[in-house]
Design a protein around this nucleic acid. Structure first.
Lengths: 213, 213
DNA sequence: TTTCATACTGTTTTTTTGAACAGTATGAAA
DNA sequence: TTTCATACTGTTCAAAAAAACAGTATGAAA
């Protein structure tokens, strides 16, 4: 991995990433020099230039501590790691008029996840829902779990979706029965199979987070 | 929430957090001034001083872009948000000689989670394990899930733990049977009840992350 | 052998940035 | 009424930091 970088360049890049994670901000050139014992910041500038040329770094000229580590999504394309961490609002239950008032007053707090952790990049339409009841126990989704959902996504058969039933959101499995989209509960205690056209699908489940202890 | 802050102070704090998340580094005083249309950086400095005094911010004097947002753990104590995001190494399976060589070459990648998301603060002893098999299906832990574990934690009865059996780690439930610690599988297909003294407990499960799609 | 990227030292210049100083205006509490 | 925190303007100053020279040394490729 990262075979196109020299030993030294990799060390510098690692330090920058490490510094960012432990200090909340990228290091200055002098701090890098100090770390490696360079007596001149020019050495650092050289390495940064190489890292920039090779596509691992970005920075804004003449701006203090403006280093940004880029991550490779595939071999060619590069994208900044900027929104590394996204705050996903957690709702106890989703109110009826949802689409407009996303974000803001996520009274239950936020889950912060980085883009890498979830396969899907969280967008402004991503939200989390604390699971209530055991309607999805058949899919091993328990009460108290946090369901991470994406609003406005096209559900595919088998996907878990959040639907608004009786002004409360419930998780169901999205299926197709004879060509018609339906919602299936994963617990015999709950009514099965509800035609999906008649209700609002609020989001498709993309991840689950469960806390122990 | 945050009723001890004025409207303006809250706005400034929000901008700093937002800037940090979208740009990877906190803003300079001038950037804050620009955002709010202040014609003097003194206004910003005033707000920062107030936020610092009230315990919401920290910074290193005379250092560019050194603002750090603090989070309240309880009403009195303050702790820096520095290691907001911690990289938890993911192992496919944990090798026998574990304790020493934590971190490094987490070949399967990393899960980044913030301190708030998991109730437990991730330490250097926190690691993740991709769940193989269905030995814990009774606790609704599925194949492919990521179990987040804490090494060196004292297991309590009922906790899910990772144990090294036949040089491979397996998840089990930690129980006490007649005063003796035992490990219980949560699937009838697997051998039940193994005395816990005879094997290495590698970690106690603190969270679970599951990805869909 | 020449060229070229890497990996540095040492010095100087220019920007950026935080901080200090001197004020003004407002509204709430004492 | 005085005091005090908030919320600013406008200016100046000094430290921090990036950038720009001008070099040296090394090893690999052409």
């Amino acid at each position: 991995m990262k075979s196109d970088l020299t030993q030294r360049q990799q060390e510098v890049l690692s330090f920058i990433i490490r510094h960012q994670q432990t200090n909340g901000a990228p290091p200055s050139q002098r701090e890098v020099a100090l770390e490696f014992g360079f007596r001149s910041t020019t050495a650092v500038a050289d390495h940064l230039r190489a890292l920039r040329r090779k596509g691992y770094l970005d920075h804004r000229p003449h701006q203090a501590r403006s280093l940004r580590v880029l991550s490779r999504t595939d071999s060619t394309e590069l994208s900044p790691t900027r929104p590394m961490i996204v705050d996903i609002p957690v709702f106890g239950c989703i109110p009826a008029g949802f689409a407009d008032e996303r974000r803001q007053d996520a009274s239950e707090g936020c889950i912060s996840v980085d883009v890498e952790t979830l396969g899907v990049k969280p967008t402004a339409r991503t939200f989390a829902l604390e699971v209530r009841g055991d309607s999805m126990i058949g899919r091993h989704i328990m009460e108290g779990d946090y369901a991470v959902l994406e609003h406005g996504m096209d559900p595919r058969p088998g996907d878990v979706v959040a639907a608004l039933i009786d002004n409360e959101s419930t998780l169901k499995t999205f299926v197709k029965q004879g060509g018609k989209p339906c919602l299936k509960a994963e617990n015999p205690k709950y009514p099965n199979l509800i035609p999906a056209q008649e209700l609002v699908i609020q989001g498709v489940m993309v991840a689950l987070i469960r806390k122990y202890r």
